[in-house]
Every structure is written in C-alpha cells, then in structure tokens.
C-alpha cells in the first residue's frame, strides 16, 4: 500500500521529488497491474480455483464421495437419471451416480495441470525456436520459419484426434499435443521481436565486446523478450484448458474415470434436460477460468507495456 501511496503522491505533486528508492520495471508493472480492477479480480478468481483444486481431497473427505466413487443407489433415480443438487450431493450427481462437485474440483486439477504445463512447454520450445530463427536468420530462419508455417497450418483438432486415437489417451500425451500446437504462435512472436532487437545498439555493443552468440542471445536479448512472452503465455493457458476440454468432450482425453470438465460436459449432452446442473456447472467453471486467465493476460500486457493505447485511454 505504501508504494501505491508514494507513487500517487509523486503523480499529484510533480514539482517535488520525494526521497524514494528507484523502482524496477517489474515493480512498476505490478503497481500498474494492481490498478487494473478486472485483472485483480481475475487473479483472485484464479487463486480461488487453484485453492479449490489443491484442497479437493478435503472436500472429498467432507462429502464422503471420492472422485471416482459411484453411488448408483443414491446418486441415480430408479430410472437411472442423475439426482439434482441436495444435501447428499452438493451440486447433484453425474450419470454414474458420482458426486458432481467433487469431480469438478478434481477436474480443475486436470485442467490447470494441462493448461499450465503445456503452456510452459510451449513457451520453452517457442522461445528457443523463435530466438534461433530470428537471431541467426539465413537458412536457419528459412527452415525454422517454414516449420512454424507447417505447424500453424495443421488442422490441429484433426491431428490431435488421430494422435490420441493412435497412441492412446493420457494426460502426458495431451500436454505434448497441446504444447506442440501452441509453440508455433509463441515462436513467431519471439522471432519477430528478436529480429527487431538484434539490430539495436546494445546487441552491437555486446558483439563488439566479444560476447559469444549464445551469450548475446540469452543474456542480452532474452530479458527484452520477457514481456511479450509473459503476455502470450498467460493467454495460451486458457486456450490449452479449452483444448483439453474439447478433446475430453470428444472422448479422446484421459481415462473416462478421471474427472475432467470436458468429459463431464460430454456426459451432460444426454441429460441436460433432466439434470441441467451437469451442463451448467462445468460450463460455468470453464467460462470463469478461461475468462479470468484472459483478463489477467490482458492486464499483464497493459502493465508491462505502459505505452499501450488502452492504458493511456483508461487514465
């Protein structure tokens, strides 16, 4: 709080220079982010979802319903329809009499795990590929850029379906598939930025001081790429979560017993008329999570790039 007060004081009294420490770019960005209400709410929402996912076993213990436990006698009506929200099942049961609430929490684990890990992988691959292509140029760029074009022009859903069908479903494969299809977007941005930066004076200075190419790339160039990479990564997470849900919805995701939002949504298509909760709750969670990540990503972009038009107009 004191930082915010100090900085706002500085803004309001331009003539006087208060005795404050110099602020780093990250500190400034964090301050700007804190002023973005939507981003802060999104951050809070993400924290809540992460906490729910982390403490899912606690809720399983409280309700007495494990994520894979089936209760055909209490969770289903005699006609085999899922029971609605009530004391036994907080959000109702699914079509096998499993606790929807508990499964949604465990589903959050899968979604977040797949979202974060695949984005991390995509980022590492994307940055390395993009920097190599952008920095070396020539035939290296030619080959890598074409490779990226090929990946970007793949009908990714079809390829994913074929891969999952051929190799068998599973979380690790899903993470690899999603990472493979998202790294190219990252690589393109990094390549462009690298090409722009490599003509700048500080790179020339490093080179004239005898820095190796590797050192120039990773010590001098990389820090300048952190901002665009962070922004893009925060936007890739929700895409990955939706991709996972899509694959699970199509029945190509994880073991059917493992809870997943997409699989729960797929299950709901037969029952949405009699058990709307089966459709509404996972859809809402998916919507809220992806929206939160998107808004946070937007906020981070604005915060890291103070010249952004939107930030200026907001002031």
């Amino acid at each position: 709080m004191s930082l915010i007060e100090a900085s706002s004081e500085a803004e309001h009294t331009p003539g006087i220079t208060p005795a404050v420490r110099g602020k780093g770019p990250w500190q400034l960005a964090w301050e700007r982010l804190q002023r973005d209400r939507a981003a802060m709410v999104s951050l809070a929402v993400i924290c809540v979802i992460v906490l729910l996912a982390v403490f899912a076993p606690v809720f399983a213990a409280v309700t007495g319903h494990g994520p894979q436990d089936q209760f055909p006698e209490t969770g289903l009506t005699p006609e085999g329809l899922p029971v609605g929200p009530g004391s036994g099942f907080w959000l109702g049961a699914d079509s096998l009499g499993r606790d929807l609430f508990v499964r949604l929490l465990y589903g959050a684990r899968v979604s977040l795990l797949v979202g974060v890990l695949s984005t991390l992988l995509a980022t590492v691959f994307g940055v390395v590929t993009g920097m190599l292509a952008g920095f070396y140029g020539g035939w290296v760029d030619g080959v890598l850029a074409r490779l990226l074009d090929v990946v970007l022009s793949f009908p990714y859903l079809l390829v994913a379906i074929v891969l999952v069908a051929a190799l068998g479903a599973g979380v690790p494969l899903m993470i690899l598939v999603i990472a493979f299809f998202s790294f190219a977007a990252m690589a393109r941005v990094v390549r462009g930025q690298t090409m722009a930066y490599k003509e700048r004076e500080f790179v020339e200075a490093a080179r004239s001081l005898g820095a190796s190419k590797l050192r120039t790339m990773f010590v001098d160039l990389l820090p300048n790429l952190v901002a665009p990479v962070t922004v893009l990564a925060s936007l890739l997470i929700p895409t990955a979560i939706v991709f996972e849900a899509t694959l699970s919805f199509l029945g190509l995701g994880v073991d059917p017993r493992t809870p997943s939002w997409g699989a729960i949504l797929a299950d709901s298509t037969d029952y949405y008329r009699v058990a709307p909760g089966l459709l509404i709750f996972p859809a809402l969670l998916l919507l809220i999570t992806t929206l939160a990540f998107n808004l946070l990503g937007d906020g981070i972009r604005d915060a890291l790039d103070p010249r952004s038009d939107r930030l200026l107009s907001r002031k």
Binding site: Q70, P72, E73, T77, E79, G80, S95, L96
Partner: peptide, 14 residues
C-alpha cells in the same frame, strides 16, 4: 452390481 447396470440403461422398466 447389476442394479447399477440396469440404471445405466434407464431403470428396471427398460
């Protein structure tokens, strides 16, 4: 559990 199977198929009438 055969009751569970009959419920998957819509209950004992079906």
């Amino acid at each position: 559990n055969k009751v569970a199977i009959t419920r998957i198929y819509g209950g004992s009438r079906l």
